[in-house]
Amino acid sequence: MDPDSGRKARPGDLSMKDLRDYEVKRRTPTKTSYRGLGVYSMAPSSSGGTTVGEALNILERTDLSNASQKRYLHRYIEASRVAFADRGRWVGDPAFEDVPKKQLLSQRFADSRECLIKDDAVLKSPLAPGDPRRPVPCASGDKAAPTTYEGENTTHLTVADKWGNVVAYTLTIEQTGGSGITVPGRGFLLNNELTDFSFAPANPAVHDPNLPGPGKRPRSSLSPTIVLDGRDRPVVALGSPGGATIITTVLQTLTGFLDRGMPLVDAIAAPRASQRNAAQTELEPGLWDSEVRRDLEAIGHSFKRNPEIGAATGVQRLPGGQWLAAAEKERRGGGSAMVVRPRS
């Protein structure tokens, strides 16, 4: 710690040996099929790929393109609630936990959970998880656990080049700028991602796969997502910051673009709802002040206002090899979408 910083830093135990022993884990991305498209995302210990994928599988059997705004939002909110209930029970670091990734992303499991959703009623939260290893249609249990806190300061970039390569990249070091502590002489920030662990089970009666442990990676919600067509060509790629709201931001943007036919920039700008297996669904002002909020409350939804949810960026492949870049118009002061032309 620089003596001139004025900060009193507690001594840590991180050693050069720890840095030498660290290895990046190369994980096979998650994959699910949605409306005939391949949806690829980040595997555990991130919960993004499995949770977005499960929610899409739950929505697969609903025609969202012709649904009213009320029915569309109701189905999206309930699919999010169910997927988060299952996330909390089953997703953690696969080096330490038995994460049934394949089963969580199976259509059979999604169908067994989708049948819980009714058009004229709302599921109670926290909702109990299902068992993807032994799916039972419409099964409900009593060992539910709400979603634990997760930091919201993250960065996402989505990039494509003229050759058709696409990168969806989400970087998180928790607080904006991380811990605010730079390693002297090394130039990198210390990461605060340990805060994504559940330091106490949300429900002691339910196994929590995200409790901390030596060498264990915390569960995140990173959801960098690339969608490919039947010939493995990119259709759209996107992602967002926002802690656990990353998942709902990506899910809502995808359904807005793929199902509702919204231009990508409008799907990103649309007012958001975020349900994460909680008693109340968070709404941005554009939905909070709308008639559809009252329509949804009439069937049992409960809401609380959130001034801002997520901050997405994305790229879309256009005919003729062109690309469209899109970012937030207003959230977090507005995003950045541009064409970069290298000079050398």
Rank of each mutant, 00 (worst) to 15 (best):
T225D: 05
L194T: 14
V183P: 08
I173F: 00
R231E: 15
L264G: 09
S220D: 14
V236E: 01
G213N: 08
G230Y: 03
V206F: 08
E193R: 03
L254F: 02
N191S: 14
L190M: 15
A237E: 14
I246G: 01
T255I: 09
T182M: 15
S221P: 04
R233N: 15
R219N: 08
L222E: 04
P212A: 07
I246C: 00
T248L: 03
A202T: 12
P241S: 07
G239L: 03
P214W: 10
L222G: 05
P212E: 12
F199D: 03
V235I: 12
K216N: 07
D232F: 00
G185L: 06
P209Y: 14
L258A: 06
D208Q: 02
S240M: 08
L264D: 05
G187R: 14
I247W: 03
G178N: 03
S179L: 13
P204Y: 08
D232W: 01
L190S: 13
P209V: 14
Q252S: 15
V265C: 07
P209C: 15
D208N: 14
V183A: 12
L251E: 03
R217G: 02
P234Y: 10
S220F: 05
V265M: 11
T170I: 09
V250Q: 00
S223W: 02
G213W: 14
D229H: 01
L251C: 08
T195A: 14
Q175T: 13
A237C: 07
P234L: 11
P234D: 13
A200W: 01
Q252L: 05
L222V: 06
Q175L: 13
G177R: 01
I247L: 01
T195N: 11
R186C: 02
V183R: 06
T176W: 00
T225Q: 01
P212H: 05
E174S: 05
F188V: 12
D259A: 07
V227C: 03
P214K: 13
T225R: 00
H207W: 06
H207Q: 03
S221A: 10
L254V: 02
D196R: 02
D232M: 05
G215K: 11
P204K: 10
D208V: 09
P201Y: 09
